[in-house]
Amino acid sequence: MTETKEIKFNEETLELVQRIIKRYPEGKQKSALLPLLHLAQAEFDGWLSAPTMDYVASLLNILPIEVYEVASFYSMYNLKPVGKCVIEVCRTSSCWLMGAEDIIKYLENKLSIKAGETTEDGMFSIKTVECLGSCGTAPMMMCGSQFHEKLSFEKVDNILDKLKSDDKRKTYFDAVVVEDY
């Protein structure tokens, strides 16, 4: 969270940005805003600071407020600093029926933080989220874009241990293991 660097995508990402913009009709480059914000969040410490959003606005030649409006609408964008691993726990419907609240409580106790908070070492944040479409394998949580399904306390322990052993910030762009159904 103290990581500070110049807000500018690297060359490779800038090329990707141009390719993304080309997916949409000419003059409609604002359409690339959501994908670009995902890229920015992944590249700039896992959250969207005002300067980061201003930078994205400049890339798309749109007004900064247009970016703030959008970034604050969608729940996947973090507008405050978060831990290196954001644990997004589903709390809705089938996950709730199958014990999501116990999982959330277990995580909170284990990490000594509440949902919405970040551990002191900046490693973990817990975020409760609405249905992630994993109802048949409930309860579940997501780290990066990896789904962890059919959770039990033991499984949560194992996942946390594994996550702790890797210091790299998790992003939605990380490769995942797809479990067999």
Binding site: P64, Y68, E69, F73
Partner: peptide
């Protein structure tokens, strides 16, 4: 020209704001 305010956040948290 140059709109600086808009509606930010969502649902009943929505507000008219300049954000920063």
């Amino acid at each position: 020209d140059g709109r600086v305010h808009g509606v930010i956040n969502r649902g009943d948290h929505s507000e008219i704001s300049t954000y920063i």
